[in-house]
């Protein structure tokens, strides 16, 4: 009886170790850990809270190039340039998407604060860009009218 229990405990410990091994993901190239609370947040202000943004300064030095009207919300090309000195990072948010945070980029070692990418837009919405420079956050928005929803 006791021996059986011991064997079972040994087996369970062995299984636990195996599960732990499987759960360890390759860390290799990535210093960053995916910010699940920010990406899973469903409201714009929740996202900015999770990104630790307290005060945003609206800035025309953030240039957002996106179509005024998008035929297909599944693919909306966005080009963002920050002319703010010492820009460290840039986040792309779509206010009316089910989860507003689209992407977050950090620039180091001579990368320009400039990104072109393609995003999904569920409906007509502002695209908001958040820029971090030093201890300050700056933002700008651009409205895009979406004719066909792209988040199916």
């Amino acid at each position: 009886m006791t021996e059986n229990k011991m064997q079972r405990r040994g087996f369970l410990q062995c299984m636990a170790a195996a599960v732990a091994l499987v759960l360890i993901k390759p860390i290799n190239a990535f210093a960053a850990i995916w910010n699940s609370s920010a990406f899973e947040a469903v409201k714009l202000d929740e996202v900015t809270n999770h990104l630790n943004v307290e005060v945003e300064i609206v800035s025309q030095d953030i240039i957002i190039m996106a179509p005024d009207q998008a035929e297909n919300g599944a693919i909306v090309q966005v080009e963002v340039t920050s002319n703010i000195a010492n820009t460290e990072s840039m986040a792309i948010l779509v206010e009316n998407n089910p989860t507003p945070l689209i992407a977050h980029f950090t620039f180091t070692n001579g990368a320009e604060p400039y990104i072109v990418t393609r995003i999904k837009m569920a409906e007509t919405s502002d695209i908001k860009i958040l820029v971090k420079a030093g201890d300050q956050y700056f933002s700008n928005t651009k409205n895009v009218i979406v004719l066909e929803n792209g988040c199916g």
Partner: peptide, 26 residues
């Protein structure tokens, strides 16, 4: 070998992702 760009993406990046970035000093 030196990190220049680190990004985190959510589900809102389009299928077959496209990205352009620019580097000084290359």
């Amino acid at each position: 070998g030196k990190t220049v760009l680190e990004a985190q993406w959510g589900t809102g990046i389009s299928k077959n992702p496209y990205l352009t970035f620019r580097l000084k000093d290359a």
